[in-house]
């Protein structure tokens, strides 16, 4: 898919693509939470399926993950992942009540889903504008569980055709308090080609 020569260029383009999406999502999240958020640089790694959760910090950590899948011309999984402390902080801020992650009530679960939904939508709006392709996300769903388990379905969806995936990862954190998380995009190969075309990668 990507040979040595084009490798660096591909990474650059996909990274820029994700930076724009993540920037837009973080801005939306900032105003929703009234917290100043900062994005870290996007990293883009080509990984075997078996190594993805390790790359993201280990399959055993408990996280809150919101996932959607793009099912239009562009095919990609997109996730917002929050470590458990940040998920608690976020939900307590929004619902003004004590939050226990192991037993979220309906309001808390739906707040989590909605925050994920807003982030994912802003991410997608920004990248969709940039490459001028409409994106059709499935309604997102959220869960709080082991990272490995959260990633299984997204990986199964992109992993059906290939043994390696491209994990495009942008983390964000609050400037003045303990709050962080990351956006993760897992594009299918055809989608990657489309992104590269639209963003002017030279034909090799």
């Amino acid at each position: 898919m990507v040979d040595g020569q084009t490798h660096g260029r591909v990474i650059d383009i996909v990274t820029e693509f994700a930076n724009i999406g993540a920037g837009s999502a973080a801005t939306a999240l900032s105003s929703l939470l009234d917290v100043e958020l900062m994005n870290d640089a996007t990293t883009c790694e080509i990984l075997p399926l078996s190594k993805v959760s390790e790359y993201l910090g280990g399959a055993k950590q408990v996280v809150a993950g919101t996932y959607t899948y793009l099912c239009g011309e562009l095919k990609s999984g997109v996730l917002v992942v929050l470590p458990q402390d940040s998920a608690i902080a976020l939900l307590e801020h929004l619902t003004k009540e004590k939050v226990v992650l192991s037993s979220l009530n309906q309001i808390q679960m739906s707040a989590l889903k909605e925050v994920g939904n807003i982030c994912l939508c802003w991410y997608l709006i920004a990248v969709s504008k940039m490459i001028d392709i409409d994106m059709i996300p499935a309604p997102p769903d959220a869960t709080v569980d082991l990272l490995g388990a959260v990633l299984d379905m997204p990986l199964a969806t992109v992993g059906a055709k290939v043994d390696t995936v491209i994990a495009v990862h942008t983390s964000f954190k609050a400037i003045d308090r303990q709050f962080e998380g990351y956006f993760l995009m897992l594009p299918e190969e055809s989608t990657l080609k489309l992104i590269l075309d639209r963003m002017g990668a030279p034909e090799q």
């Binding site: 959760s53 390790e54 569980d145 490995g148 388990a149 959260v150 990633l151 299984d152 379905m153 199964a156």
Partner: peptide
């Protein structure tokens, strides 16, 4: 043992799969 991997073991070894969701 990660996704799509296979492992064989004898004592005293242990094998683990971490964070299985829809995986089996």
């Amino acid at each position: 043992i990660g996704i799509g991997q296979l492992g064989i073991c004898r004592p005293p070894e242990q094998l683990a799969c971490l964070g299985l969701g829809s995986c089996v």
